[in-house]
Design a protein around this nucleic acid. Sequence first.
DNA 1: CGAATGATATACT
DNA 2: GTATATCATTCGA
Length: 196
Amino acid sequence: MTTKLDKSFYLQEDVVRLARLLIGKRLVSRVDGHYCSGLISETEAYAGAEDRASHAFGNRRTARTEIMFREGGHAYIYLCYGIHHLFNVVSNSEGIPHAILIRGMIQEQGIPVMQERRKFPKDPARLCAGPGTLSQAMGFRNTQSGISLLGETVWIEESGIRPGKDSLSVGPRIGVDYAGEDALLPYRFLWNGERD
DNA sequence: CGAATGATATACT
DNA sequence: GTATATCATTCGA
């Protein structure tokens, strides 16, 4: 089963639940004519206005965060540390800046292209080792921020694969120490790859 | 452990 | 308009 997720999926209101639902789904990119895909294995929820870790905390609207205020089903891609392009899924209705950071993926198709984009890392395990490398492997760039997830460049499919019981772990998000108490929220989901 | 590296937000002139 | 601090990270010493 490889049905592309439709708009109603992204319009759901519970961003934390959505982050969990994205685990095991298939992320697909068709950038520069290259087809790449993988199963999402790690996500983090960013709960918009009420989340100190979010760029849109306090409903802060800027040219960059404007993307997150759109209705669900768009990609929010921004440059982090001047080096890495991080890929996020925008969710909820227009005006509510929820987003889910995709941090990890189990590669399926297009691995040679990913290796080339990543300049052939010495350690093959580092092909998609984090949110920055995953984006680089998939061909995501911050200039694509705002692109629709219902189009033909990047989308997410139902894979038909169900993470096994006890294969999911939950914990605090990575690299958000600046967010105070909100840095402790259990908004990170990690899948060890086991299936039902 | 710390440098790399540049867009972004904010605080100035 | 200009200056500066900061950052949802990665890689190599």
